[in-house]
Computed example of a mutant assay.
Amino acid sequence: MMIWLLKTHFLLNENIHLLAGQVVRFGITGGLTTLINAGIYYGGIKWIHLSPLLANFIGYLVAMITGYIMHSRFSFRGHGCQDSHWQLLPRFFLASLLSLAGNSFWVWLLVDVMHQLKWTPLPFMIFVTPLLSFWLNRQWVFHAHSDELTASEL
């Protein structure tokens, strides 16, 4: 019984450690892509005078391309996914479309409906949407798609 508890405790600690590393890598990559998206959004509305939704869409496209490259090579490396880029890319694109929809919702609600300042969606784009994105990428896009993951696949 004691050996089983020690093995379980070690495996849980290893899983938590691996997950924590993945969260940190995702945070770095996601932070960079979020800043890219937010920077293009803000620059587009401030200096180029684009509509907020168009600026958000352009920022999304640049951030999506950057995010796919960085997440597949850095954030979720070693996660157990053996799929080719042709299999990963459509899932990543769909997951990122949900992020775009989330960010567009914040822009629409706060700027168009509530008539707030054009920068008010930024905190939601930076802090709320990335939580959904991490979960989708970890559980669906870069998941090993097997019934049971080992600690090394986290």
Rank of each mutant, 00 (worst) to 15 (best):
S75A: 14
S104F: 05
Q82H: 13
P52F: 09
E148M: 10
W140S: 03
L61Y: 07
G78F: 10
L19E: 14
A95T: 12
W4T: 12
E153G: 06
G80C: 04
M1F: 14
H9E: 11
I58D: 01
H9T: 13
L5G: 09
T29E: 06
V141P: 07
S72E: 08
K118P: 05
H9L: 13
D112L: 08
L97S: 03
G43S: 06
I36G: 02
W140R: 10
I48Q: 01
I3Y: 11
N137K: 04
M114E: 02
G39D: 04
H9G: 09
M114L: 15
S152C: 01
Q116V: 00
R77W: 04
S75I: 02
I48K: 02
D147V: 12
M125A: 04
W4P: 01
H17C: 13
L18S: 14
S84D: 10
L154R: 15
G102W: 02
T120Q: 10
F74H: 11
F92L: 01
S51W: 05
M70N: 11
H9M: 12
S72C: 06
W108M: 05
H71L: 00
K118M: 01
P130A: 05
K7N: 15
H145A: 02
L149G: 01
H115M: 07
G102K: 01
I40Q: 02
Y42M: 08
T34N: 06
I16Q: 06
R138K: 15
L50N: 03
S72D: 12
V128F: 05
A101I: 13
S72F: 02
A151N: 10
A38T: 14
V23Q: 05
G59Q: 03
I16W: 11
L18M: 11
L132C: 09
S96E: 11
W135M: 09
R73I: 07
Q116L: 12
G43Y: 10
V107F: 07
W140A: 00
R91P: 00
L53K: 12
N37D: 13
L54S: 04
T120N: 06
M1C: 00
W135D: 03
F134H: 05
